[in-house]
Design a protein around this nucleic acid. Structure first.
Length: 675
DNA sequence: TTGCCTCGAGATCA
DNA sequence: CTCGAGGCAA
């Protein structure tokens, strides 16, 4: 093939620039200059030229949005700056309190400038541009680690593959919300319906599902959009010092921001914005579940800082949750792992807040009595806090004439054992322990779960069958199962059965902490299991300890210590544990850094700056594991400050107060981690 | 709590 | 083709 002549190269460049300009006019500025057909002709010409001269193709060419080949799996991405969650406000008082807190912390009586925007119902993503080219697109994940979905992000027409304009930093991380417009969603479903394909139930799930496709061609066929709402990591050039100005420069680089953003002053401004958007909510092109307020000044944001996992300078003001009426078909009692009886309302299915709700927990007997929900009642349902369905109230006028209050059962509805309710406790419990099939099933689920023994393939269905068939009466029985027994069950062939036996075998090699966690002792979750393991080091030491000795463990109080001691004192539990050990469930000896001789034990430590080898969360976990406490700010009570790169005011304060400061390398040595 | 995607494997039908 | 497990997101 002949190399492309310079004139052709030039033409290709011109075409790309032209197409990108029209993209920007169309998607970002919402102001197209040429008809679609003319745009299509430009694209067609570019495609033809690139086909004839493949050496001219570059990844950022507008023709390369769909990279072609599916990815084998999603890679993990660590967010350099964590993607935090945000606090919620539901009532105007919450907003007033927010504004008051902000002014108190900033020690000002002046009205605060706030940047406001709608809170879109989509999913948060982080995009990284290096030298102006899209390099990475990732989901939020847990805020620290997300998934690499670059191949799918590239297919979104409103995402520029190359930044336009000038003056962008060498490295720019931007955050935004990927969503589907209501019209796009309806149109997509209409087409899917015509073709007899399955339709999506709501735009949010459709958008989330689309980003999780392995094959970008499928994603490209979904009407995804994006609005950017903030900058993350920036290197090489500072951004403006007002949030609203940052949004402006982002827009200048072709990154679409919400046209509804607005800067207001003071709490009245916030509430006015909320009402304005609320009035226009139904005429917006997309679904929103509230609005977001941010302190506009970046300097003020910095001074306000963070609390736990949310910044103090922003808050989401949610619209009231959508409510629907339905009827109660039944009220059932669920028996949990610890025997706790929970009343659950089985409802006539009703579509509310984008999903079909047919169950709603009533939490406990007190809650049930307070609301006096009865079978046959008409009730108001909403999805509280985004997720969990809630019975708001009963419509008394519609109550059937002969109905009666639900009472706490005297006997366990599953096994018939006595039900006990301790003085002053809200929960009632079945006393059947592992003889109760419900408790047994839940215990086994917990035992096999990922953070416990992690037995792959042992799911709900299989556990139900094993218990119902009488094959398993306690966790120890799991390890007696044979391929033949398993293969006899529903939907279990030889292959599946062998896989389960294999993963059971695999799960026997565990850690002391996981083992303790798996036992399901009351009040012993992952964290407590970890400190118990560190403190006692061996099962025998723990088993033979009196409650007082267990109480010596940091963060373990008399109640938890009592539960732990009682658990091991129970001969039924002892038998199960012995059986597990007999089946060679085992773990490596717990290593050196016992809490007692750890250098961090009882120390208060502050982390500042970026560590190169781990996230702050991880560093915090290490410290806590070694008996230390992590604090957010430096004071005279601080024993130690760990300074990573770019450490700021906390380091300064530490020096002022004469607090000992450790570099990352020294810290790693201290926690017994080498580089 | 629900909905979505992916994967492995069992069930079903030609 | 269908189902269950497992993982993710809000």
């Amino acid at each position: 093939m002949k190399p492309a002549p310079a004139s052709l190269r030039h033409r290709v460049e011109r075409l790309r620039a032209e197409i990108e300009r029209h993209n920007r006019l169309y998607h970002v500025l919402d102001n197209p200059e040429i008809p679609d057909a003319a745009y299509d002709r430009l694209m067609a010409e570019l495609r033809a030229l690139e086909q004839q001269h493949p050496e001219l193709v570059v990844p950022e060419s507008p023709t390369q949005r769909v990279g072609g080949s599916p990815v084998p799996e999603f890679a993990e991405v660590r967010h350099q700056l964590p993607m935090l969650s945000l606090d919620n406000a539901f009532a105007r008082e919450d907003v007033e309190a927010f504004d008051r807190r902000v002014r108190e912390r900033l020690e000002t009586d002046e009205q605060i400038g706030y940047a406001c925007e709608p809170k879109l119902d989509g999913l948060a993503v982080s995009l990284t541009y290096r030298d102006g080219l899209l390099a990475l697109g990732a989901t939020r994940g847990d805020g620290t680690i997300g998934e690499d979905v670059t191949h799918n992000i590239r297919t979104i027409p409103t995402v520029p593959l190359r930044l336009s304009g000038r003056g962008w930093p060498d490295l720019l991380e931007v955050r935004g919300e990927v969503f589907m417009s209501s019209a796009g969603f309806d149109e997509m479903n209409r087409r899917a319906n015509e073709k007899g394909e399955k339709i999506f139930v709501n735009p949010r799930n459709a958008a989330a599902g689309s980003l999780r496709q392995l094959d970008p061609r499928l994603t490209a066929s979904r009407p995804l959009e994006i609005y950017f709402y903030s900058a993350g990591r920036v290197e090489g050039k500072p951004l403006p010092d007002l949030h609203s100005e940052i949004l402006k420069v982002l827009r200048g680089w072709g990154l679409r921001t919400s046209p509804e953003t607005q800067v207001v002053t003071g709490v009245d401004g916030l509430l006015g914005y909320y009402e304005d958007i609320g009035r226009r909510r139904s005429s917006l092109r997309y679904q929103i579940d509230g609005v977001v307020y941010k302190v506009d000044s970046i300097e003020q944001q910095r001074r306000l800082g963070f609390v736990a996992r949310a910044p103090r300078w922003q808050i989401a003001h949610k619209f009231p949750a959508e409510e629907e009426m339905t009827t109660v078909r039944a009220i059932e009692w669920q028996v949990g792992r610890t025997g706790a009886l929970t009343p659950v309302a089985r409802l006539e299915p009703v579509f509310v807040g984008g999903v079909t709700v047919s169950n709603a927990t009533l939490h406990n007997i007190d809650e049930l009595k307070r609301k006096d929900v009865r079978v046959g009642d008409s009730v108001i349902i909403r999805r509280a806090g985004d997720v969990i369905p809630e019975v708001v109230r009963v419509i008394i006028e519609k109550r059937p004439s002969k109905s009666s209050s639900v009472r706490l059962p005297q006997k366990c509805p599953v096994c018939g054992s006595a039900v006990e309710r301790e003085e002053g406790e809200a929960v009632a419990r079945c006393t059947g322990a592992l003889t109760c099939p419900a408790q047994l099933k839940e215990s086994l689920r917990h035992f096999a779960s990922r953070r416990a023994l992690d037995i792959e393939g042992l799911g709900t269905r299989l556990i139900d069958q094993l218990v119902d068939a009488g094959l398993v009466r306690n966790p120890g029985d799991l390890f007696k199962l044979t391929v033949e027994q398993l293969a006899n069950l529903d939907r279990m062939g030889d292959r599946s059965a062998a896989n389960v036996v294999e993963s059971l075998e695999h799960s026997k090699q565990t850690t002391f902490a996981r083992f303790l966690h798996a036992l399901g002792i009351r009040d012993v979750g992952e964290a407590t299991a970890e400190v118990l393991a560190q403190h006692f080091r061996s099962l025998d030491a723990l088993r033979s300890s009196p409650a007082e000795a267990i109480e010596e463990v940091p963060d373990v109080g008399p109640v938890t210590a009592g539960h732990v001691h009682a658990f091991f004192a129970d001969s039924r539990n002892a038998k199960v544990i012995d059986a597990l050990i007999q089946h060679r469930v085992r773990w490596p000896a717990v290593q050196g850094n016992s809490m007692r001789d750890s250098p961090l034990s009882g120390k208060t430590i502050v982390l500042t700056g970026k560590l190169s080898t781990m996230s702050r969360e991880e560093a915090g976990d290490h410290i806590r594991k070694l008996g230390g406490k992590v604090a957010g700010s430096v004071s005279k009570n601080t024993d130690l400050v760990v300074a990573g790169g770019d450490a700021g005011s906390k380091l300064k304060k530490a020096t002022q107060l004469g607090v000992k400061v450790l570099e990352e390398a020294e810290f790693l040595k201290l926690i017994g981690r080498k580089r």
